[in-house]
Amino acid sequence: MSVPGVKLVTIGERLLVDNDRVAARNHRRLSEAGVLTVNIMAAPGAGKTSFIVRTLEALRGRARAGVIEGDIAGSIDAETVLAAGAHGAVQINTGGNCHLEADMVERALHDLDLDGLDVLFVENVGNLVCPTQWALGEHVKLCLVGAAEGDDKPVKYPPMFAASDAIVLNKTDLIDLVDFDRAFFTSSVRALNPAAPIFDVSCRSGAGIPVWADWLLAQRQGVSGRDSARLGMAPIGGT
């Protein structure tokens, strides 16, 4: 303010306020449609797509799930999840962007029949850093980490573990092979996040998937919208 004509004005506003606004709109829309939406964040190679495929198998006859696949380029993952029984899949190519943003998801929602879905998985771009900042409108932020990545992931990437509503440790069949210290991992996660459930799974064997799928369906009950009591009643026909 020492320079004449220059004025310092306090703003005090979140930098990503525009993204937050679109995310809130997505959230409202998904809640009204009764579609529990899970933002899956992980490093490349953690097993995001395999995890979705395993979960689709576990949900078969219990809930109809759609998938939004975020990737820098390509459409292989969308084809994979459709083959695994997804009731709709949209591929978003971010064109080099290292994370999904709320407006990308908003556009993808136009291409999905939300009334025909109970659950929506949004597979974020493989990255443990940037996706944390960008709300998409999800109900559950999920962090997936493979045991082979090491037990120090929470210490190296605190924001991801602090922001997550659920944490999945995948590739538990490798724990002994890669000297993964489960106690250190858990205590580091708990320092950042006292409440989020931690699910141990192996997408290779399918171990742990039923427990995770039951938890997921329980979360679905909390999402407002149409006919949530229908969930859990098998099978879902095409009425």
Partner: peptide, 21 residues
């Protein structure tokens, strides 16, 4: 002791701007 993370360090704000009229 392993403590508990606080909110400090999670901010991402535009605090202020300097403008000319």
């Amino acid at each position: 002791t392993i403590g508990q993370v606080t909110d400090d360090g999670g901010e991402m704000l535009i605090e202020s701007v300097e403008i000319e009229r």
